[in-house]
Design a protein around this nucleic acid. Sequence first.
DNA 1: GAACATTTTTACACGGACGTAAAATCTGGA
DNA 2: TCCAGATTTTACGTCCGTGTAAAAATGTTC
Lengths: 212, 212
Amino acid sequence: MKNAISRPSERRPVERVRSARATERRASILDRASEIFGQKGYGRTTLDDIAGAVGVKREAIYYYFDHKLDILCEIITPESKRLVEDLAAIMRRHDVSPRDRLAMAVRNHMSGFNPDFLQLAVVLRELDGQDDDGRVSEIRRLWRAYQESWIDLVREGQQAGCFAGHLDPRLTAFSILGMCNAPSTWFQPSGERSMEELVETLVTVTLNGVAP
Amino acid sequence: MKNAISRPSERRPVERVRSARATERRASILDRASEIFGQKGYGRTTLDDIAGAVGVKREAIYYYFDHKLDILCEIITPESKRLVEDLAAIMRRHDVSPRDRLAMAVRNHMSGFNPDFLQLAVVLRELDGQDDDGRVSEIRRLWRAYQESWIDLVREGQQAGCFAGHLDPRLTAFSILGMCNAPSTWFQPSGERSMEELVETLVTVTLNGVAP
DNA sequence: GAACATTTTTACACGGACGTAAAATCTGGA
DNA sequence: TCCAGATTTTACGTCCGTGTAAAAATGTTC
């Protein structure tokens, strides 16, 4: 019954949802899961954690999702697409200087950060090596495209003479992304410093960091 | 021998190791474990992985270590101490400018990076909430001290007028550390760019990043 | 080479987490 | 109110990973 006939996760998803209440519940599952994945990571989050936060027994989750991984993918995929598309839009803004585009890219990246801290790069890493069943590989593809855009952003800035030319674009882009992703491991929006301050710090350090 | 008298993990560890061969094997376990923890993280590494890499059955590991966690602690604790002490030594170098000290701090941080990519911050996060049994909390204490030193480093540089004064020292220090830790998720020493290039990129971006 | 200590393996107990199936409960409409 | 479908729960089954205990194998010393 699981993956009976063909490819992995081939079978049609559970599309039994009818009532408005059920739609809400489904959304609630995604919301809670998003929070908890963000806090503990995918691997260390159990369906019991999610079910508990939603207020049902673990098995009730299976009425809405066939697999734990499906929940993750349904959260991450749209988020990833938005990130990629927004960055692509920024890249097309030839009226804006590379420097300003870089600032926009950082802000865009961080905009997906709040409120649930779900960091693609971190979660993606967790899935390495195993669950290559289409959904995951699409996310991976999106994330790769995103990284490539970042590298292009750095390279173009260098060619325009706005950024330090002696830095390797890939190392530089990945360093910036790494810095922007790291807050998922330590930043508390309830802490002394606000999200806005964090973003401004990241923008400042990034812009200064790549200056010629 | 380890923390013999007190808290959890009360029973005395296996101190049966006598022969030179056994000492080598023990070291080999630590080496392999270090590599694999670095690649897959602590939680996703099984004793079978380690045993396989060493070339014995999983259970043989228990002759040398009582718990999986003991292996991690024995790897991480000395590494952590070194990091903390080295940074403290850098902080005492009042003959060196804050700017140069920051560069030294980055290089010191990255020196513990090769060859096994065991990133304290990342692994520590994995242990959150659960295994507070003395050994882990000591490591956490060391890591906190390390972070505090970093914050001091930034603050002193600001007070000396060498770094941008409007940045929050904690956000800044954590951003830099995050950037320096991130390579554990993507850097391949066998890739096109060398460790030296990576470190120089990080130093450059950091020093520029905090410039006034 | 025989007794003894050291090291490794075999065999097993246990718990945690995912996933399935069917029974039970709830809800809205006729 | 009663029924049919929607939703949740109860009850299992299974796999995987840690850890224990005792037997087997290996090495060492006299």
